[in-house]
Structure formats: C-alpha cells, structure tokens
Write a protein that binds this DNA or RNA. Structure first.
Lengths: 252, 252
DNA sequence: CCGACGCTAAAGGTCTGACGTATCGCGCCA
DNA sequence: TGGCGCGATACGTCAGACCTTTAGCGTCGG
C-alpha cells in the first residue's frame, strides 16, 4: 500500500481500506463454479465441456466472459483446450510434473524477497533429502536402483550445460526412488530454484568430480540397502554442497 | 491417448501424435512475455501496467487478447487488477499464503489419484514436523514461544468445527516457529489436505483431549528449548495421529 | 484396390466497437 | 467547513464477425 490510507480521521472507525473486491466479476464466478465442480469430481478428468458459446449461454454470460473463465482454469492446469473439430475444452488429468513446475515458479518469486532466503531452501533440503536417501535404500527395487545408479554415473564435461542438469537429475531421481510422490513434490522445486540460482563459474572441475563421487557413493549405499549409510552420505554431500553455495556468495 | 495412434505404418517415422500445441496463441505469448519480465524484475512489484488498450497496442494485439493474457497472470497471482480511476493492473507483491493455497489446491487434486496416497502425505509429515519441532525448540524467541503455547492451549468443544481448525493451527504455528518459511510452504498444504479429508465423526472426545495434551507437551519442550524432546514428542504424536487416520479407514 | 489430396464442418483464436459500472478526485453548494 | 454530486478513467461485459486449426471423409488418380 504505497499511499498509506489517511490515518482514519478521529471518530471514524479504522476501516480496512486496503483494496477489496466488493463484487466478484462474472468471469471469476464462472471459473470458481467450474473449479468447484472439477474438484468435487462432478466433472471427471477427460470430460469435454460444452463449446465456449454454449458454456457462456449456460451461465448467462457472453462468450468472451466464458473464455476468460476458461483462461483462468487452463492457467491452473485444470482444463486444456484444443482447436479444430474434435477440439474443445477438456478437464485435465492431474499431473504431478505441472505441480512441481508451478511450485518452483512460485518459489522463484518468493526466493528473492526477505521472506524466503536461499539458506532456508538449503536447510529444507538438508531435512528432506537425507531422509529420502534412507527411504530409497529401504525400498528401491532393482529397476529403481538401476535408475539411481545411472543417474549417478551420468558424466558431463565441465563445460557442457546439459551436464549440469544431469547432476541435479541425480537428486531428482533419488527423490522419486522413495516411491513417495509427496517427497518429490516438496524437494524438486527446491532443487529447481537452486539450479537456476547457482553461478557455476566459480566451481572447479575437480569439485564437480567430488560431487560425482558422492553421488556414486550414495547410489551404492542405496543399491545395497544400507539405509543409515545412504542417509549419512547424503547429509555429508549436502553439507559439502552448501559450502559451494556459500563460497559462491550469491545470497549476500 | 485413448485411440492409440495406428502403430506407425512401416516406413513412416514414429511421429509423436499426442496433442501438441504447434503455435502458441497470442494471449499466451503476451502472458509469457509479461511473466518473464516480472520474474526477471524488470517489472517490480507495485508497478502499474498500461491500461488494457495500450497494453494490447504495445504487443500488437487487441484489447480482448491482452485481457486474456492478464487473466492468466492474475490467476497465477503475478498481477492484480482494480477498477475505477486510479485502478489498473499492478504487479503483485509475492505472497507466501497464496503459494500455500495453490499448492494445497493442487495436492487436493493429486491426492485422489493412484499417484499420491494419503499415506504418502502422512509419511512426508512424519519427516517434516519432528524436524520442525526440533528447529523451533532451538530458535524460537519469547514471542514465538508464546504463540506456540497459545495455539496448543486453544480449547475447543468436540462439536465446534472451528475447534478442529484450531487443532491444526498448532501444527501450522509450529512450522512457522522454525523461522524457515520453506518448511511452512512444504508442510502446510499437507495439513490442509489432511484436514479436509479426515472424517471427524469416528473420533471420541477423550481422543481429542489426548491430542491436546500432546500439543501442550510439545509446546513446553519448545518453550524450554529441549530440541530432542520436542522432536521425539512430535514424532510420537504424529504416529498416534496416524492411527486415528488409519482407523478412520478413508484411504481404502 | 489403395493411397494421396483436398474439401468441409466444428471449435477455438482474434478483432472491433460499444456500453455498463466501479472508483476517486475535485469543485460546488449549503 | 463539510458533505454531495459530477465527471474522468480503466476495468467488466456484451455482441457479432471473421480467421485458423484440425480431423474426418469423400473423391480422384495410380
């Protein structure tokens, strides 16, 4: 609130003056109604909604208004639209990857405010990933173990950007290896944000080698079901990584 | 993909047939461009964008298209619009509460799919909250301690819906007491989902009393800085709660 | 007989122009 | 001096038209 409401003249109640939406616009009402029906399961995934014209008529609004409502829902990944005959608006299948993207994007906004510090992300990761390593070691089946191993083995040149991505893929793979989607949902956005914010220039090649070695060690612990070792190794690894981030000095 | 593409006749490349957006619609391009500028900081929070007409002209599109772009951004809480003179479209201040809401809503969608099980949420919470209790015990200042205490003390009739909310407020308060917003961001949506899904009918009054007692015990551990005890008590509490959820039997 | 080409209908995408309506500042009037 | 109403501004909504994409289907040629 830039212009600070004029300090409630004496006698008048200290009315909250702060930009309130008195009436919900029609497009919002339509969007809310449809969202409610989707979340309630009345409109299951895959359902084809009426075309924009009919939809508008059904709600007693114009096509433009109906379209704006659909834009809202589609930007929340609740519906998707396709053109052409056989096109239309369809209720979306829930997609964890989209959730991860959205959360990551939202974190990206928050992470540069005083409210959320990079060190908070590192701390959260330090809670999450060692525990994830433990669970992975306890649960991973042969196929999953293979995935973790190959993610750890993925080599990269120090100069190849895709290699850097490959490095973080190990953490992602490990989160998924727990078999608990919720852990991926919580951990992956953190990794995404960190990836976009770490300046790679200050990191030497031999340090990347060390990182790789840690990954392979953790992968082996997981492969052989040594939960305690996996957890400890991951914790050490993250502490080490934290030093890199700190030296990079990008969080002022 | 219901109609399974016709198995690529020999000779033709196995073209991915799966509903692709060949061209990005104009409203999406405009939205993406604006989003990029907002995330990059070119348009800092509080900035007033040109009115819809000018914005459209600036991008070479009509006002309707510009509006649809703005609807997308506003549904992602990147901008907000106000009517009247002095109204317009403004870049939003980042708001953690919105992120929590959005994530919670997205989880609500996922949690009824085979991909995400309620037990996954409980497991994630079992990782997160004991650690949060430990951090809170280590860090909480006097004011925070008081908040945690009063959240634990908040009594409710077994029949009062608001009391149930009050109960979960303790967990929320504790997450916030860590001083690490990221932990709140990860833990709160889980609690929100669980709250909306637990059927309260099967729970006896004396069981609620037990819950309250646990909360007060944890609060005291936090207040006196006993990190180990706080962590252990929270773990025990969650395990106990898990029994309630299991007996409730709502996850099939 | 079969495959390639092209037409056509359905639905979303975009444009234009108009009018409704919420707000707020300013100046008039009591 | 203080309350009230006018008017400017920008979003909200509507109506109708035309463009573009897409898939199905029918036709034509090999």
């Amino acid at each position: 609130m830039p212009p600070q409401p004029p300090a409630a003249t004496p006698g008048t109640a200290p009315v909250a003056h702060l930009r309130v939406q008195r009436v919900r616009p029609a497009y919002r009402q339509v969007a809310d109604e449809l969202r409610t029906q989707i979340l309630a399961g009345t409109l299951p995934a895959g359902t084809r909604l009426p075309n924009e014209g009919e939809l508008g008529r059904a709600f007693g609004v114009s096509r433009s208004t109906a379209r704006e409502a659909l834009r809202v829902l589609s930007s929340q990944h609740l519906v998707e639209t396709h053109r052409g005959v056989q096109g239309g608006t369809f209720v979306s299948e829930p997609d964890p990857a989209r959730v991860v993207e959205d959360v990551g994007s939202a974190l990206g906004v928050l992470v540069m405010t005083p409210q959320l510090h990079v060190s908070d992300l590192l701390e959260a990761r330090l809670l999450l990933e060692p525990a994830a390593a433990r669970l992975a070691a306890q649960r991973a089946d042969a196929e999953t173990v293979e995935a973790v191993r190959s993610a750890a083995a993925a080599h990269r040149d120090a100069r190849d950007p895709s290699g850097f991505v490959g490095h973080l893929d190990f953490h992602t793979t490990l989160l998924m290896a727990t078999g608990n989607l919720m852990l991926t949902l919580m951990g992956q956005p953190v990794n995404d944000v960190l990836r976009t914010r770490l300046r790679r220039e200050g990191v030497e090649a031999h340090e990347w080698d060390k990182v790789d070695a840690c990954h392979r060690e953790i992968a082996e612990h997981v492969a052989e079901g040594r939960a305690d070792d996996a957890e400890a190794a991951m914790r050490d690894h993250l502490v080490e990584l934290r030093r890199l981030y700190e030296r990079d000095g990008f969080w002022t």
